[in-house]
Amino acid sequence: MKLNTVHPKEGYTWIRQGIWLFKQNPIGFLMLVFMYIFAAQLAVLIPVIGMFAVLLVTPTLSVGFMTACRLAIQKERIRPSVYLSALRSTPLVRKRILQLGLIYAALILVLSFILSLLVDFELLIPLMTGDKTMTPEMVRQIYLILFFGGLLYVPVAMLMWFSPVLVAWEDMPVPQALFSSVIACWTNRGAFFLYLAIWGAVLIAIPLTIGLILDSLDIGQAASFIVAPISMAGLTVMHCSFFATWKACFAEKESAVLIA
């Protein structure tokens, strides 16, 4: 395995490859994303412990989805049990992947604390409980959350982007995997910038704009029927494109080929 340097325009190619990969087994990939969202929504109903559990298993689920991408390329069936692939590995890999989960949970906790100092979350409580309609100030706070949250999450994303797969597939120790992930993201920052900018528009800017337009037309109730399917499909394709970033940034021994 070696680190590759790619051209910035590859960020767009990764998305095209993600779309191609999604087409190989759309039902299987949608099932995996739906399972994750459903389980996460149930987990957060349990105060503190539920959210911690979701963060703890995130690296494990990441390896599972990447394994599903391998299976789709090989025309094999995707089963829900693929999410447990990392835990079914050696005891050392299980230990390391859970250590990554603890690190990720700690980083998100620190990020949330810093974000709470920058944004007025109390202003958004009536909106989340349905007691109040959206005001311009609420919209401003939402954009602030997205901006500062995204900015603060960048270093976390760089640490966690490749590290679960490096631990599970390349048998790397946790510190080396975290370091290698950061170096890979930084080395190919041009491609990642384009890649994330496109996904930011697809998953954040476009749904928010559609929602605001429908609200201004007094048909805001229809937003969920339009935005939800777009967001679900976009989120699934984005997860598929993670495999494309892996294939581009690290030379693998496997012969699986992605078609752009």
Rank of each mutant, 00 (worst) to 15 (best):
A106Y: 02
L107W: 00
I97V: 15
L102S: 08
R96G: 04
I97G: 08
L109W: 07
F113D: 09
V119D: 05
V93R: 15
R94D: 05
L107M: 12
V110S: 00
D120C: 08
I108L: 12
D120L: 02
K95Y: 14
D120A: 07
I103Y: 11
T90D: 09
L109V: 13
R94H: 05
L92C: 04
F113G: 06
I114Q: 05
L109P: 01
L100I: 01
L102P: 00
V110R: 06
V93Y: 10
L115D: 07
L102I: 05
L109R: 03
L107N: 03
V119C: 11
L111T: 06
I108Q: 14
L102D: 00
L98N: 03
I108P: 00
V119H: 07
I108K: 08
K95V: 12
L98E: 01
P91I: 05
L100Q: 04
I108N: 12
L118E: 05
K95G: 09
L115C: 04
G101P: 06
S116W: 11
L111Y: 06
L100Y: 01
R94V: 02
V119Q: 07
I108D: 04
D120F: 04
R94E: 08
V93Q: 14
Y104L: 11
L107V: 00
L107Q: 02
V119P: 07
S116K: 09
L102K: 10
L98P: 08
L92I: 14
S116T: 12
I108T: 07
L92K: 15
G101N: 02
L118Y: 06
L92T: 15
P91K: 12
L102N: 07
I114P: 01
A105E: 02
Y104N: 08
I114K: 02
P91N: 09
P91G: 07
L107E: 08
L115P: 03
F113L: 15
Y104T: 00
R94C: 10
L98K: 03
L92M: 14
L100N: 04
R96W: 03
I114Y: 04
Q99S: 13
L118C: 07
R96V: 03
I97N: 06
L109N: 03
P91S: 08
A105M: 01
R96Y: 09
A105G: 01
L102C: 13
L115S: 02
D120K: 09
A106M: 07
L107D: 06
V110T: 03
F113Q: 13
A106H: 01
S112A: 15
T90F: 09
T90P: 00
R96F: 02
F113E: 11
V110I: 15
R96E: 08
L109I: 13
